[in-house]
Design a protein around this nucleic acid. Structure first.
Lengths: 185, 185
DNA sequence: GTCTATACGTAGATAGAC
DNA sequence: GTCTATCTACGTATAGAC
């Protein structure tokens, strides 16, 4: 099983979304996989190494989502929201956004992970700004907002809403999504 | 020192904002205070008890902020944003929003704390909705948004922005605040 | 690659002296 | 109210057999 490695990464991603980086353990991970801790240490010597691998996994997913949306036949003005919807669909399966979870644990992370989380956060913004810029160039986005500020607003509110959803239930969540869509007119 | 108790609560609040609830320890707290773990256990037998006390502390602060703004001479249409600014000023001292931090750790919390976090989250929304409703009644808020959805959007984006601020720096943060303000016209 | 065994630190918590 | 001492559990991590 050479894909045990990616199996571990996927399971860790889920655990980070559910518990956060500092709160999941190799022991718990191992039990879920039906192996021992030592086996996971074989694939990722330190927890930090596993963390970095998960960040790269997230980065890849983010890049793929961008490419898919960018190259899709959807109208340019629909793309920012389509991108957000796509990310939510991916995230909703396991809880809150893993990047949010990593940001919350930021001060406890190793320098190598902090750097990755920085890159991830920046990439999230950049990718959405590009889609917003395209929409604006097509004359379809009326917003007079600074696009970076709009991007953070969209990203933050979506992720924040996911946290409220976990605590308060689904109701607000869909209401809020509809309202977000209106912001993008 | 009978206010040792509130001293512990304040310090814990700071620690939650910096590290999250699961990541701070009695030992660390004790060293910061110059006492021993046992002493803190005397005031709060279980970590859970301390957590609940901190939630109540946050709740009190939220209520006070609401009262101050509600009764201030500021125009009704300025109050929602004034409320947000006031909360940010309070939070910025120590990192991210403690409620955000508690939401991130939600699944790891005891039932008693989960209940408190639920109440806190609901209260945050309710308080802002009331201020928004007042603003709307004064005819000053043009937004056609559902007010609950708008409240969550405002709260989430503010808190999310605080997280990005910690990771990416100050730049976005103030840009975003200005843009948020425009949403409230 | 996965196992058993184990080392070592730190976490939350309690007992009992002062 | 705070201390020392101690317990127990669990965390990350390593060594060495299979």
């Amino acid at each position: 099983m050479t894909n045990r490695k990616s199996q571990i990464i996927e399971l860790t991603l889920k655990n980070i979304q559910e518990k956060g980086f500092t709160s999941f353990s190799y022991d718990h991970l191992a039990k879920e996989l039906g192996v021992t801790k030592a086996s996971i240490h074989y694939h990722f010597e330190k927890k930090e190494d596993l963390g970095v691998a998960v960040c790269e996994r997230i980065q890849k997913g983010l890049g793929e989502a961008y490419t898919v949306i960018k190259e899709s036949t959807v109208a340019a003005e629909e793309k920012p929201f389509a991108f957000i919807l796509r990310r939510i669909k991916f995230l909703e399966q396991n809880g809150v956004c893993p990047i949010t979870a990593l940001q919350a644990d930021y001060q406890e992370l190793s320098p190598s992970m902090q750097e990755k989380v920085q890159q991830l956060s920046q990439m999230e913004v950049d990718v959405l700004v590009e889609l917003l810029q395209d929409a604006k160039n097509h004359g379809s986005l009326q917003s007079t907002m600074d696009l970076e500020a709009l991007a953070i607003l969209l990203i933050s509110s979506t992720k924040g809403a996911l946290q409220y959803k976990r605590v308060l239930g689904e109701d607000f969540f869909h209401k809020m999504l509809e309202q977000l869509k209106k912001l993008l007119k």
